[in-house]
Each structure stands twice: as C-alpha cells, then as structure tokens.
C-alpha cells in the first residue's frame, strides 16, 4: 500500500515546528512503527535525519510510544497503543497526519519525542506505599476480595504513556493521577496513606501545570488501557474529603 504521511518535525521546545510530507510504501501486516522504520530507513538512505519517535517494547506495555495519528492519540483503534496499531486498518492511498503529544506539561524534545518527566514527579509526590524492603508480613496474611483486587488491577494497568493528557482539551492529567490513587487506595495496604497521597499527588499535578478536568471523557476514550473515568470521581471525592478533613 502507498501512503502519504504528514509528519511533525521540530528541533526542540523553543524551535518552530512544521509538517513534512513523505511518501511511503507499506505492507498491511506491518505495525505502524514498522511503517515508520521503513520511512526512516529511506531517509537515512538519502543521508537525511530520521524522524525521532519514542518506542521500546512494541507490545503495548512500556508506555513509550506516543503519536497522535489523524488527530487521535495512538490512532483510530480503541484500546490500542501506537506500537500495536497495524497498517491493515488504513487504506491504500490514504494520507495520515502524525503529531506528537501536545500539552504544556509535555514539552517537545525533538519531532515526536516529548518530555514526560512530570508524570514521574507526580508519582514521587506520593504514588507509593511507604514500606521498606524486608518489613513486609506474609503475603497471605491479609485476604483481599478477588473483585477488589481486580478493580485495583484495572487501575494499576496504566502504562504512563500520557495519551489521556494529549486527548484532553485542557491537558489534564486527572486520569493518570486518579488511576494510581485508585490502585493503591483500594488495597488495604495502601489505604493508610490514602488521604495524604491524594493531596500531595493532586498538588503536584497542579504544580506541573496540567489543566483542570471538565468531564469531556476524551481521556477514557483514548486510553490504550481503557482506564475508567470513575477513578477520577473517586479521586475527587477523596480529595474533597481530605481537604475538608484537614481543615477541621
């Protein structure tokens, strides 16, 4: 299949960016990133600089890959990361636009590569359970209801890619933050620190310049792990509770 790609190129956060147009010959069995590899090999053959994009596992789990494809983070298929998207979902002769995540808190490094360290700092603010190595009791000493463990798992499955932020018109990181808060807060091990965790993670999120949530639910629609926005409601309740609680 022959494709026309309009790809965003930019040399750094403070440089102007532009779309560049390329033709590429692809096979319908290729993954989207394999198609990008073909394009880059072609650029290198012409001694040009390849398009920088992030990727590693190519199995939809590391959260590295991040392309806005035809206006949607990770492309047209729901529950799918860019690396898992295959060319059989595109038509011969199609024009595809490829852009980086666009958000104030994810400055562009080069082309499609952005800086997502703000996510690390949100986790550092409290996205953990304070237990040192060797302090743990036996793994089976607390039974946890299967459904509850499953619910915690559903939230814990977040890969930290940032599609939620890229999808949100306000550039909000509520889904990312809420997913971690739900994962830990639902488990008895994480309940103890729940209130302080909610406060410090939400504060860090604000400090990083992420926007507010206006309930458009675009984040849920584009989350490759289909994490539910009910987590956000739970976080909001906990945040209100902890703020009111601490004013007493």
């Amino acid at each position: 299949m022959k494709l026309t790609l309009k790809v965003w190129r930019q040399n750094g956060a403070n440089e102007p960016g532009r779309f560049e147009t390329h033709q590429v010959e692809a096979d319908e069995h290729m993954s989207f990133l394999e198609m990008m590899d073909v394009l880059n090999e072609g650029l290198l053959a012409e001694k040009k600089t390849p398009i920088a994009f992030e990727h590693d596992c190519r199995e939809g789990i590391c959260g590295s890959c991040n392309m806005v494809i035809n206006g949607r983070p990770h492309g047209p298929n729901s529950g799918t990361t860019t690396c898992q998207l295959h060319m059989r979902y595109f038509k011969d002769g199609e024009t595809i636009t490829i852009e980086p995540w666009r958000a104030k808190s994810f400055p562009i490094i080069k082309d499609l590569v952005v800086d997502r360290t703000s996510f690390d700092r949100i986790i550092q603010a409290g996205g953990y359970i304070s237990v040192n190595t060797g302090q743990a009791q036996d793994g089976n000493s607390i039974a946890i209801e299967k459904d509850l463990a499953g619910q915690a798992f559903d939230a814990a499955t977040c890969i930290g890619c940032g599609a939620c932020v890229a999808a949100c018109p306000n550039g909000s990181a509520m889904l990312f933050t809420a997913a971690k808060i739900a994962h830990l807060g639902l488990l008895p091990q994480g309940e103890v620190e729940h209130k302080t965790r909610v406060q410090s993670m939400v504060n860090q999120m604000d400090e990083e310049g992420f926007g507010a949530c206006s309930n458009t639910a675009a984040c849920e629609a584009d989350c490759p792990k289909e994490i539910s926005i009910t987590n956000i409601a739970m976080m909001n309740r906990a945040y209100m509770g902890s703020v009111l609680g601490s004013q007493k």
Partner: peptide, 9 residues
C-alpha cells in the same frame, strides 16, 4: 511478601 506490601495486585 514485599511485592504484596507494595500493592502489587
């Protein structure tokens, strides 16, 4: 034990 205490589901 350690992983369970950290919240590994």
């Amino acid at each position: 034990d350690q992983a369970v205490a950290q919240g590994v589901p």
